[in-house]
């Protein structure tokens, strides 16, 4: 079950370790009219800066592609499915 009021079933969270990167990623996706929201990462997914971009799972591929093309990949992306966070993509590079 979600531990976060702002995260519902079918939401994905791109969790970042860098404030500057998450702000850049937000600006990029907002500029392209993506329906995203910058939120504090849930306790169970906390990374260094504790910030995550929330979006619907339908946007997952597009978000992944865009962030990769702009060198803005997050630390990892998790999706809430059946009450559990499942990591969809983990990026080992520590520059996130």
């Amino acid at each position: 079950m979600s531990d976060h009021y702002l995260v519902k079933e079918g939401h994905c969270l791109a969790v970042f370790n860098s404030t500057h990167r998450v702000l850049k990623a937000e600006g990029l996706l907002k500029g392209l009219a993506f329906d995203i929201l910058l939120i504090p990462a849930p306790r169970s997914l906390q990374a260094d800066c504790g910030l995550a971009l929330r979006f619907n799972v339908e946007l997952l591929k597009a978000v992944q592609t865009l962030l990769k093309n702009h060198d803005l990949l997050p630390a990892y992306i998790s999706c809430l499915q059946d009450g559990q966070y499942t990591t969809c993509e983990e990026c080992p590079d520590d520059n996130h």
Binding site: L6, L38, I39, P40, P42, R43, L51
Partner: peptide, 12 residues
């Protein structure tokens, strides 16, 4: 950023 993060965190 900190202000909206604070408002969001109030839910938790």
């Amino acid at each position: 950023l900190l202000m909206r993060n604070f408002i969001h965190t109030l839910l938790e």
